[in-house]
Design a protein around this nucleic acid. Structure first.
Length: 393
DNA sequence: CGTCTTTGACCGGCGC
DNA sequence: GCGCCGGTCAAAGACG
């Protein structure tokens, strides 16, 4: 049924600006209207044919079937319209917040002033609501030493966070970093995908250029560094390393968001990572106003326990769990002891897929197609994750 | 010859 | 201040 909005379309829509998303759903709604029209037309044509040929058997049953289909499509149309209005509302709210943030930004040009301002305004909800970007920059507290060493994951450094008095002396350097990171805030969150594969590099549809390799401490397997080779100066980077504990497990970590159109083959992975980043960002802004939906208590607790050794937030999609035929979805802060499985399981996901050396695209596509709630759960968990991070402040 | 990979050097952050 | 470590750079080599 070409008028229906597929999971892939929704995922792609997530990456696009709200107005594009709006247009997509409007288009889909229009498509459904068209289909409704053509169905009614074919229904009447069928009726004419039925009358013309005087077919006595089955017309009633056939008519009833088509009426059912019509009703189903009407319901779907209503759902789409509801989604459309919801997205319109969300877009308006986000747009307002963006405008507020833009208005406030000129006041924080001096980083030292900004830092002091942050301290001075603790508890001032109105002020915090107006500074979503700084919220995002401040919530990440890297800890280089306590990283996810057992899994071969490394913390992402954040030169912005300034918690030590000595750090204030370097506020000029931090100013540069703040500027650069505001220009590229997407590198704050890492999306890590664990898959079981014999291949050294799992295809994900994108074109990568290797720019380095290191043997990290605590893991004899080398870690390879890749940079996205599509588009000009694409900020997306990826790290590939085998798990120290289980060498059949490949950990692929993505950082950043593509600044160009990704090939269709890479869309599922790009969408998963991009959606994670987008929702982390939007969740962060939402949490600034204290209205984050904290619908994942376990997850919030998991992150809340990280307050002492928090580091680069990592969203882990574990596609290696063969035991329960579920896809494990967890979020961590690059700290093995503090990462807890997220209580979401994707029913029907065949974990044997990953054992067949499928590409990440295949695995994630399968996951997204088999259960659309996967994406919804991803969104919800990220929202609560970012909500929890702001609560730590 | 152009592109990609390899690999040692370098840089910056962090802990002691 | 020093050493460790993760991340990045860039020259050299490999490959088609």
């Amino acid at each position: 049924m070409e008028g229906r909005v597929s999971v892939k379309e929704l995922v792609e829509a997530e990456e696009k600006p709200p107005h594009t998303c709006h247009n997509n759903i409007t288009d889909a709604s229009q498509k459904n209207d068209d289909i409704l029209g053509s169905t009614i037309l074919s229904l009447s044509l069928n009726n004419q044919q039925v009358q013309a040929h005087r077919i006595e058997e089955q017309p009633a049953a056939q008519l009833g079937l088509m009426r059912d289909k019509l009703e189903e499509m009407k319901r779907e149309n209503q759902n789409l319209r509801a989604m459309l209005s919801q997205i319109t509302q969300h877009y308006a709210a986000l747009h307002n917040r963006l405008l507020m943030a833009m208005q406030q930004r000129p006041q924080q040009q001096s980083p030292l002033k900004s830092h002091n301002l942050q301290e001075d305004n603790e508890g001032d909800e109105e002020e915090e609501a107006a500074l979503p970007i700084r919220h995002f920059l401040d919530i990440h507290e890297p800890s280089a030493s306590e990283s996810n060493k057992s899994e071969g994951l490394i913390p992402h450094r954040n030169s912005i966070t300034c918690t030590k008095p000595a750090c204030e002396a370097n506020s000029n350097n931090n100013a540069k970093n703040i500027e650069s990171d505001q220009a590229n805030p997407c590198r704050k969150v890492r999306v890590s995908i664990r898959t079981r594969s014999d291949l050294s590099l799992i295809g994900d549809g994108c074109q990568w250029r290797k720019y380095g390799q290191k043997i990290a401490k605590g893991n004899p397997c080398p870690r390879a560094y890749y940079r996205c080779n599509l588009g000009t100066a694409c900020p997306v980077r990826k790290q590939v390393q085998r798990c120290a504990k289980d060498k059949s497990v490949v950990i692929t970590s993505y950082e950043g968001k593509h600044n160009h159109a990704v090939p269709a083959a890479a869309a599922p992975v790009a969408a998963a990572t991009s959606a994670a980043l987008n929702m982390f960002l939007s969740g962060s802004t939402t949490s600034a106003q204290g209205s984050t939906q904290s619908n994942s208590g376990l997850l919030s607790c998991a992150f809340a326990s990280l307050s002492t050794s928090s580091s680069c937030p990592t969203i882990t999609l574990d596609l290696t769990q063969p035991s329960n035929q579920h896809m494990q979805f967890q979020m961590s802060a690059s700290s093995s002891h503090s990462s807890h499985p997220f209580p979401f399981a994707l029913d029907g996901y065949d974990s044997s897929l990953s054992a067949k050396n499928m590409s990440l695209v295949d695995v994630i596509s399968a996951a997204l197609v088999k259960d659309p709630s996967f994406k919804a759960a991803l969104a919800a968990s990220i929202s609560s994750f970012s909500g929890a991070t702001s609560l730590q402040r």
